[in-house]
Write a protein that binds this DNA or RNA. Structure first.
Length: 878
RNA sequence: GGGCGCUUAGCUCAGCUGGAAGAGCAUCUCGUUUACACCGAGAGGGUCGGGAGUUCGAACCUCUCAGCGCCCACCA
């Protein structure tokens, strides 16, 4: 028995538990069909489910369930990312509450603490994903720091190193002074701010009143200046080139050099060069062999190379200005719009800093990653993201992979006493290599840096399947079928997976990358905690059910567009679930039970034939749309069918039958109802797995679980039967409309006379009389013979009935006219094609594909013409 | 500066290859008919941002103007 009310909370969790415990999420390796696999974008171990995850994972789950029902070997590989910086931050913050710093604990103890934290509090998100209905094979869940994945990381690192694709270099890198680590270019966000431009002057050496005028936004960096540059095309200033100037305060002499970097149009035309603290200046410095003067400590305070050692940059800045003003070198200060780099995690200003770091030679790895996309071996959906990908990949810079953190994969690098580098997968191998190198055993020192988190995520597509071992899963599921993720991590992750996979596996990590947008708030604003406009998916699930949230995500997902949150819409999809629930209850009340061996091609009643055809049509649409990743179209197809066709029309139309006397009709209708409801549960299951399963389990004894129920194969759809019932539906709609327009009282009896009837419509009227009268609340439905009979007059006056305008309710004349016009248009169109295709200049000039395209359209128009002609013929016959 | 995208009903948005404008919500009217008021029936509402062009035919293609958004790079 189905409960009277649809209360998803009561069964969603239980159903999930059953799936998981029965192993329903594990791939059926015995299946003879293709494999289908997705690797989950691993959420951070610190992560909590937000709407972005809800979207991403709903889409994946829809694809997974859909393919599972097709009988394929289906794997959704779950797991989590150790999220270096994020996790270290969380744990450090917790420790700080107790007044402990990580340095108090020491590296080993700290890492132990992180692991403890992970076991205890990490992975909340996996529970939440279960609540959403994500049918991942949790028994295979991986963690980027688990033993197997760590081995994969070491192996590929050593491989890359020995191929010369990983190297150590002293370079200017983005330095995060909060976490005291280097970060990659991608982890730096540029923010617009209104800053100040400071104008001051450096005296020229050996001259009392000659100066070079400088403009800068960062006066405190002057202590690191090692030159001033002027363009040799700068007519006004070029006479200064070759002279020396003096940095005030520290009275250091530096040369004035000629360099194109100094744009005469910008600033004062003369640029102070600080090679150790600016990426452009670094390049200038390289060109002129300038010394590098580092003025910063790792915590971004100034060092002993400046007079303000220990001060922060801001403090040093005001001190510098103060001093310059005092000495008479300061000229003016102006407001200046500028862009300042911040760390995406730390939120502090990122400083370019000279340090020893490790790099991956990304430009080399990018080549293959670009090629396979060019060749279509990996396709972006929507395709437009290809361009973004190419653009970035073709301009890729070496990837800084070393982090001066503690939480992460420590690099498999050991140094000998003379700093010789040994890169091996294990310490023992490194020892052996060192012994060979030195001819004796020596003490090795391990590199303390850890790897960028994205290094290990870059291996995710194959490391989770067991690589470097040759496992059955790797064999079966690699390359994975599709990757589903947001556009914001194309560079962070998609690109890196492409590079790593192409390098190591020589094969794409996934055949398609489905890229979706962002989930925004109701008004299209980005959701953020600081704005307070976030919506917690768990609360939404609590309130409306996971099915409603999932359906919302699917229905809103149109390619290449962001999704705006809309509670009213989620409520609408909860209502949809309620509607289905009640429809099922209707079936239960009327003993509509699934009939084993029911042959839906053998039903007799037109309404039953009609709903079966409609169900097949909906199935076809869902199938096609899911195959093309058109989630919203797929969702809308089911929605329209369930609410629009099944509930609004079919259930109403069969009521007279079910409450009637004809037992054969009843039997057939009950069986049909059950068949259609089952079909709905099947095609709706990927979107709303919980309610469909609950109904599946409670409306009949089943030999198959819904999660593994076979997805219908291609079916023959009987279109001719649709017209008859559509005729009745049109008639009913028109009568209802007239009734409302005429403002008839609710109980008013109504008699309708139809005129211009032909054989077909006479037959239709006979067949659907009961249904039509019942649904449009008619007293009588009669044919108008052309004369007003005493009967008709009687019905008006005696029964209080209303005599409708005797013109026939459906305006076939207008319909005929419409079709005639359409046919006219089609004929013109065909003429147009004929003209075009017979025109030699068009055929000669246009590429063959264009000509083919025109020909294809022509034949399409021909087809349409045939259809319209047939429709017109039907009307004429009616 | 380079790239991408958007502008369609009051709101949020669909509209796949050009062939007579759609959904959800909101609004208005009617309705306690035995699945459902988380409901049913009906209605109103759009010169598809402006302009020009291609076409027999344009929301869709081309050009142009205006507004909005995102990404990348740079900014002494």
């Amino acid at each position: 028995m189905l409960e009277k009310n649809y209360t998803p909370k009561d069964f969603e969790e239980e159903i999930y538990k059953d799936w998981e415990e029965s192993g329903d999420f594990q791939p059926d390796m015995r299946s003879s069909k293709d494999a289908f696999s997705i690797v989950i974008p691993p959420p951070n171990v610190t992560g909590v489910l937000h709407m972005g995850h809800a979207l991403d994972n709903t889409l994946q789950d829809i694809l997974i369930r859909y393919n599972r029902m097709q009988g394929k070997k289906v794997l959704w590989q779950p797991g989590m990312d150790h999220a270096g910086i994020a996790t270290q931050m969380v744990v450090e913050r917790n420790l700080a509450k107790e007044g402990i710093s990580r340095h108090d604990l020491g590296r080993e103890k700290f890492i132990e603490t992180v692991w403890q934290w992970k076991e205890k509090s990490g992975g909340t998100i996996c529970k939440q994903l279960r609540r959403l209905g994500a049918s991942c094979d949790w028994s295979r869940a991986r963690f980027t720091m688990d033993e197997g994945l760590s081995r994969a990381v070491r192996k590929i690192f050593v491989h890359l190193y020995k191929d010369g694709l990983i190297y150590k270099a002293k370079k200017l890198v983005n330095w995060d002074s909060k976490f005291m680590t280097a970060v990659s270019d991608l982890e730096v966000v540029q923010k617009e701010t209104v800053g100040k431009m400071y104008y001051y002057k450096y005296p020229i050496e050996g001259s009392a009143n000659e100066f070079v005028h400088i403009a800068t936004t960062r006066p405190e960096t002057m202590f690191g200046d090692t030159a001033v540059a002027i363009s040799k095309d700068n007519e006004k200033l070029k006479q200064l080139i070759g002279k020396n100037c003096i940095i005030p305060i520290i009275n250091k002499v530096i040369p004035i050099i000629a360099d194109e970097h100094a744009d005469p149009e910008k600033g004062t035309g003369a640029v102070k060069i600080t090679p150790a603290h600016d990426f452009n200046d670094f390049e200038v410095g390289k060109r002129h062999n300038l010394p590098l003067v580092n003025i910063l400590n790792p915590d971004a305070t100034l060092n002993e190379n400046t007079p303000f050692a220990g001060l922060s940059t801001m403090e040093a800045r005001s001190k510098t200005i103060e001093k310059l003003t005092e000495l008479g070198y300061m000229e003016k200060i102006e407001d200046h719009p500028m862009v300042i780099p911040y760390g995406d995690r730390s939120g502090v200003i990122i400083e370019p800093l000279m340090t020893d770091q490790w790099f991956v030679d990304a430009p080399v790895l990018a080549k293959e990653a670009i090629r396979v996309v060019e060749e279509g071996k990996m396709e972006f959906v929507p395709k437009s993201y290809e361009k973004t990908y190419f653009e970035w990949m073709r301009n890729i810079q070496p990837w800084c992979i070393s982090r001066q953190l503690w939480w992460g994969h420590q690099m498999p690098i050991w140094y000998g006493p003379d700093e010789t580098i040994f890169c091996e997968e294990t310490e023992a191998e490194a020892q052996a290599a060192a012994e060979k190198h030195y001819g004796k055993a020596v003490e090795l020192r391990r590199e303390t840096d850890v790897l960028d988190t994205w290094f290990s995520s870059g291996l995710w597509a194959f490391s989770t399947l067991g690589w470097p071992d040759k496992t059955e899963y790797l064999e079966t599921f690699y390359p994975t079928s599709v990757l589903v993720t947001g556009f914001d991590i194309i560079f962070f992750w998609v690109a890196r997976m492409m590079m790593m996979s192409m390098y190591m596996m020589k094969e794409v990590p996934f055949k398609k990358a489905y890229i979706h947008g962002l989930v925004r708030d109701e008004h299209g604003q980005k959701m953020s905690k600081s704005k307070g406009n976030t919506v917690d998916p768990m609360e939404t699930i609590e309130k409306y059910g996971a099915d409603a949230l999932r359906f919302f995500m699917a229905a809103m997902e149109t390619q290449g567009r962001d999704i705006n949150m809309s509670e009213s819409r989620i409520a609408g999809y909860r209502n949809f679930a309620t509607k289905l629930w009640n429809a099922a209850r209707f079936g239960e009340m009327n003993e509509c039970k699934t009939v084993e061996g029911f042959d839906e091609t053998q039903v007799n009643l037109a309404v039953n034939q009609w709903i079966i055809a409609k169900a097949k049509e909906a199935t076809k649409e869902v199938t096609q749309n899911l195959d093309n990743f058109r989630f919203s179209d797929a969702a809308n197809s089911v929605y329209q069918f369930v609410w629009g066709s099944f509930c609004d029309w079919y259930i109403e139309m069969i009521k007279p039958l079910l409450y009637g006397e004809n037992e054969a009709d009843k039997t057939e209708t009950r069986a049909t109802f059950a068949w259609v409801l089952d079909r709905i549960l099947v095609i709706l299951h990927p979107f709303m797995p919980f309610i469909t399963t609950q109904l599946w389990n409670n409306t009949a004894e089943r030999s198959v679980k819904l999660i593994k129920a076979p997805w219908p194969k291609k079916e023959q759809i009987d279109e001719s039967v649709m017209h008859k019932v559509d005729w009745a539906i049109d008639l009913i709609s028109d009568i209802r409309s007239l009734r409302a327009e005429m403002n008839l009282p609710a109980g008013a009896k109504l008699t309708v006379y139809l005129k211009d009837m032909n054989n077909q419509s006479k037959q239709n009227m006979k067949e659907f009389r009961t249904i039509i009268c019942s649904l449009s609340r008619l007293e009588k439905l009669e044919e108008f013979s052309g004369e007003i009979t005493p009967d008709m007059v009687q019905s008006v006056f005696k029964e209080g009935a209303i005599l409708l305008p005797l013109k026939g309710v459906v305006d076939f004349a207008a319909e005929k006219e419409r079709l005639r016009k359409e046919l006219e248009g089609l004929n013109k169109r065909l003429e147009g094609y004929a003209k075009k295709l017979n025109n030699p200049s068009f055929v000669d000039k246009a590429p063959a594909t264009v000509v083919d395209e025109e020909k294809r359209r022509q034949s399409e128009a021909l087809e349409s013409k045939a259809k319209v002609e047939a429709a017109l013929q039907r009307i004429v016959n009616l």
